[in-house]
Amino acid sequence: MHHTPAHDVPMQPTASWPAKRRITLTVNGAAKPFDVAPWPTRLDARRESLELTGTKKRCDHGPCGACTVLVDGRRILACLTLAIMKDGAAVTTVEGLGEGDARPPLQHAFVEHDACQCGDGTPGQICSAVGLMTEGRANTADDIRERMRGTLCWCGAYPNIVAAIDQVMHAGERGAGR
């Protein structure tokens, strides 16, 4: 039985329930205002109010990394930040990286290397890998392993995940015949 207010039933502010505040978020490229109470995490707000369920909710305490998304291009954990604190930010979830034929090379590489398995950790791993490549600090497979720390794979597909990221990270070099 689900007792929390459903997203389609507006919560009525009362004297004891602080009112929602209007904030603006750019989510996957589209700026939109939405009303949020002060306490939901970004993860809950996104999944329940924006109906973007690609970002997964697992441990809800930080260690697993399943909820990793990109905020202003940098990887963060959506379960440990409040939606209201990110007013004005640009958020990219796994949905915003491209779907179907528009999927980026990283997602093709995950499929090619069988790095997805059960798939529950995959959206967080993909977002974390995009953040890793943007940071530009990883060069070797060991670097990738170290810098993907904190994004758990329940199926233990770590070698495949590292291989997929490594392939995309060095695609230009291989394409140039080096």
Binding site: R75, L80, G150
Partner: peptide, 9 residues
């Protein structure tokens, strides 16, 4: 310490 997303936050 921590993981890269946590360090970034």
């Amino acid at each position: 310490g921590a993981s890269p997303p946590l360090r970034t936050m």
